[in-house]
Amino acid sequence: TYYTVKSGDTLNKIAAQYGVSVANLRSWSGISGDLIFVGQKLIVKKG
Rank of each mutant, 00 (worst) to 15 (best):
T10Y: 03
F37R: 09
A16D: 12
W28A: 07
L25T: 00
Q40I: 05
L11Y: 04
S32C: 11
I43Q: 10
S27N: 12
K41A: 08
K13M: 12
K13F: 09
G30S: 09
W28V: 05
D34E: 10
I43W: 11
D34Y: 08
I14S: 00
G39E: 04
G8K: 04
G30D: 10
D9W: 01
T4S: 07
K41R: 14
K41Y: 07
K46H: 13
N24E: 15
V22S: 06
A16C: 12
A16Q: 13
A16L: 13
T4F: 12
G47S: 13
L11M: 07
R26S: 08
G39K: 02
G39N: 06
K13R: 10
G30C: 11
D34K: 06
S32G: 09
G47N: 12
V5Q: 01
I36A: 03
K6L: 09
G30F: 07
K13P: 00
G8H: 05
G47E: 13
G33C: 09
S32M: 12
Y3W: 04
G8Y: 05
W28I: 06
K45R: 13
Q40W: 05
A16P: 02
L25F: 03
R26D: 02
T4H: 08
I14G: 00
N12D: 15
V22E: 09
N12V: 15
I31P: 02
V5A: 05
G47R: 11
S7P: 15
K13L: 11
V20Y: 03
A15S: 08
K45W: 12
T4E: 11
F37P: 04
K13Y: 09
G33F: 07
T4R: 07
V5L: 02
V44N: 02
D34C: 11
Y3I: 09
G19D: 09
A15C: 06
N24H: 10
S27Y: 12
I31Y: 04
K41T: 12
S7N: 11
L42S: 00
K6P: 01
N24C: 15
K45A: 13
T10G: 02
G39D: 05
I31M: 09
A23E: 15
L35E: 15
S32R: 09
G19W: 05
G47I: 13
T10R: 03
L11F: 06
A23T: 10
L25I: 15
Y3H: 13
K45P: 10
I36H: 01
Q40F: 05
D9M: 02
I43T: 10
Y18N: 07
K6F: 04
G19R: 09
G8R: 04
V22I: 11
V38C: 08
Y18A: 07
A15I: 02
S21R: 04
Y18L: 14
G47T: 13
G33R: 05
S27I: 13
R26H: 05
V38R: 05
G47P: 15
Q17P: 00
G19S: 09
D34N: 11
L42K: 01
V22N: 03
V44A: 03
Q17S: 10
G47M: 12
K6V: 11
G39W: 04
G33T: 10
V38S: 07
F37G: 06
A16F: 10
N12L: 15
Y2C: 15
V20K: 01
L42D: 00
A23P: 08
G8T: 05
S29T: 08
Q40D: 08
G30Q: 10
S27L: 15
S21F: 04
L25H: 00
F37D: 08
A23Q: 12
I36Q: 02
Y18G: 02
W28M: 08
L35R: 12
G47C: 12
S27T: 12
I43V: 12
T10M: 04
K46F: 15
D9S: 01
N12I: 15
I14P: 00
V20D: 02
Y18F: 15
K41S: 09
D9G: 01
A16H: 12
I43H: 09
S7H: 14
S7G: 09
W28G: 03
Y2Q: 09
Y2K: 07
G30I: 05
Y18S: 05
N12C: 14
S21H: 05
A23G: 09
T10C: 06
V38W: 04
K6C: 07
V5C: 06
T1C: 15
Q40G: 03
F37K: 10
Q40L: 07
K46I: 15
V38Y: 05
I14W: 01
G8L: 04
D9R: 00
T10A: 04
S29K: 02
V44Q: 02
R26Q: 13
G30R: 07
T4W: 12
I36K: 01
S29R: 01
N24F: 07
A15M: 02
G33I: 07
G39M: 03
T1W: 15
V22C: 07
T10F: 04
L11S: 00
I31W: 06
G47V: 13
S27F: 12
S7E: 15
T4C: 10
T10E: 05
T4N: 06
A23F: 06
L11I: 09
L35A: 13
G33A: 08
V38G: 04
I31L: 14
I14T: 00
G47L: 13
S7Q: 14
V22P: 08
N24P: 00
G19H: 10
A15L: 03
I31E: 03
N12E: 15
G8M: 05
Y2T: 11
V44K: 02
A23V: 10
S7W: 12
G39T: 03
L11A: 02
S7F: 14
L25S: 00
K6A: 09
V44M: 06
I43K: 10
G30T: 06
S27M: 14
L35N: 14
A23N: 10
N12A: 15
V38P: 14
I36E: 02
Y18H: 13
L25K: 00
L25E: 00
A16E: 15
T10Q: 04
N24K: 10
G47W: 11
D9L: 01
D34I: 07
L25M: 06
W28D: 06
S27P: 01
N24L: 12
Q17A: 13
G19K: 10
T1S: 12
K6T: 09
N24W: 08
T1G: 11
G33D: 11
N12F: 13
V22A: 08
S7V: 15
Y3T: 03
G19F: 07
V20I: 14
N12S: 14
S32K: 12
A16K: 12
T1E: 15
V20A: 05
S32D: 14
G47F: 12
V20E: 08
K6H: 07
T1H: 14
D9A: 01
G8W: 04
S27C: 13
R26E: 07
L35D: 15
I31D: 03
V5P: 02
Y2H: 10
D34W: 09
V38D: 07
I36D: 02
V44H: 02
Q40P: 02
I36M: 05
S32F: 10
K41N: 09
V20F: 03
V44T: 06
D9E: 04
I36V: 09
Y3C: 05
G8P: 02
I14D: 00
K46Q: 15
K13E: 11
L25D: 01
I31Q: 04
K45S: 14
T1K: 12
S29V: 05
G39P: 00
K6I: 09
D34V: 07
I14R: 00
D34T: 08
V38A: 10
Y3K: 01
V20L: 08
A23L: 07
Y2E: 12
K45C: 15
V44W: 04
G8F: 05
L42V: 09
L35M: 13
V5F: 04
G30P: 04
T10V: 04
L11P: 02
G30K: 09
Q40A: 05
N24M: 13
R26T: 09
T1D: 13
G47A: 13
G39R: 02
F37V: 11
T1I: 15
G47K: 11
A23H: 11
I43A: 08
I14C: 02
L11Q: 01
Y3S: 00
G30A: 08
L35T: 14
S27E: 15
Y2S: 10
I31F: 09
I36N: 01
A15W: 02
T10W: 03
V44Y: 04
S32L: 11
L25Q: 00
G33M: 07
S32P: 08
K6N: 07
S29I: 05
F37C: 13
T10I: 04
L42W: 01
D9N: 01
L42Y: 01
V20Q: 06
Q40V: 05
L11K: 00
Y18I: 10
T4A: 06
K13I: 10
V38K: 06
Q40C: 05
A16R: 11
G8C: 06
K41H: 10
D34A: 07
R26V: 12
V5Y: 03
V44G: 02
Y3P: 01
I43L: 15
K45Y: 14
D34Q: 08
V22M: 08
A16W: 10
L11E: 01
G33V: 07
S21P: 07
T1F: 15
V44R: 01
Q17D: 11
V5W: 04
V5K: 00
I31K: 02
T1L: 14
I31H: 04
G33Q: 08
G19Y: 06
K41F: 08
L25G: 00
A16I: 11
V44E: 01
K41G: 06
S29D: 03
Y3L: 05
V44I: 15
T10P: 01
S21E: 08
R26F: 05
D9V: 01
V38E: 11
Y18W: 12
S21M: 06
K6E: 09
G33S: 11
Q17Y: 12
V44D: 03
Y2N: 08
A23S: 11
Y3G: 02
W28P: 02
N24D: 15
V22F: 02
V20N: 02
L25A: 00
V38H: 06
W28R: 03
G19V: 04
K46P: 15
N24V: 12
G8Q: 05
N24G: 06
G8D: 07
W28L: 07
V38F: 05
W28C: 04
